[in-house]
């Protein structure tokens, strides 16, 4: 019983250590990276932002190119540490890597546990309409004659009803996220709403369909995506923010976005 009590004590202590982030030792990660000579980046799979090619076992994607650039700027070697989505934040707090570089939305809830950099990209929604839909104004969709396809069970339904309350909503029940797009392409619906990445992917993979994105590349209700570091990491965070803004100014991030996301 005594042993069990001791073991429990050790377990609780270590859990506390992890939560408090004391397992990492020093709080100056930037200095640690420099003296170590390696930047350790935690990644979890999500195509095309960052994923491991099952054949070559190499990481590739938007954030992999960003991480390579970051290591280059710091003048150190890059080491990508494999994580999964459920272990990404615990791994960061436990000091297994210096930064989590994934396609993570920077929400206020998450920001209470980790420190987010300045956003490197925003992802929002966009409308896909029939190719012959007149004009570029989304207000024209709020009309009783307009049929809007919606993937039933998705979060889009509520947004569609809010944005175009007078239009007819056509629920499509399917496992395929692109089935509402097919409704538009086949002329059975006039429009559909989805996240901008899904929309561009659909049009990229099916270049001959009779559909287009309304208003060109216009996204709305954008949510910022940012990298995460440990909350007490101010010097490293300062450096990262300057690096992100620099890359946005030079057009490097935009170039990568075109290469990996196609928009």
């Amino acid at each position: 019983m005594k042993q069990l009590g001791k073991l429990l004590q050790v377990m609780l202590l270590s859990v506390w250590a992890v939560l408090a982030g004391t397992g990492t030792g020093s709080a100056d990660t930037l200095a640690d990276i420099k003296s170590r000579g390696t930047l350790r980046v935690g990644m979890a799979d999500s195509t095309p932002s960052q994923s491991k090619d099952p054949n070559s076992n190499e990481w590739e994607g938007f954030n992999v190119d960003m991480a390579k650039n970051l290591a280059e700027q710091l003048g150190v070697k890059l080491e990508i540490v494999d994580a999964s989505w459920s272990t990404l934040i615990p791994g960061l707090l436990a000091g297994q890597y210096d930064i989590a570089m994934c396609d993570m939305f920077a929400t206020p809830k998450r920001a209470q546990t980790v420190a987010f950099t300045t956003p490197y990209m925003n992802l929002g929604f966009s409308w896909v309409v029939r190719a012959d839909f007149p004009g570029e104004d989304a207000a024209a969709l709020d009309d009783p004659a307009i049929r809007i396809a919606n993937l039933s069970g998705s979060a889009m339904g509520d947004i569609i009803r809010k944005l175009a309350p007078r239009a007819q909503v056509k629920d499509v029940a399917s496992d395929n996220v692109f089935s509402p797009h097919l409704e538009v392409a086949s002329g059975r619906a006039d429009a559909t709403l989805s996240d901008h990445y899904n929309n561009t992917q659909f049009l990229k993979r099916n270049p001959s369909v009779k559909a287009r994105i309304l208003g060109g590349d216009k996204q709305f209700q954008q949510t910022p995506m940012a990298y995460a570091v440990r909350p007490d990491d101010q010097p490293f965070l300062n450096m990262l923010n300057s690096w992100i803004i620099y890359n946005q100014t030079t057009g490097f991030s935009e170039e990568l976005r075109h290469k990996w996301y196609g928009f």
């Binding site: 270590s14 859990v15 250590a17 992890v18 272990t87 615990p90 791994g91």
Partner: peptide, 10 residues
């Protein structure tokens, strides 16, 4: 989870 996160911290 414990071995992967708590043990290294400990």
């Amino acid at each position: 989870f414990w071995i992967h996160f708590a043990l290294p911290a400990l």
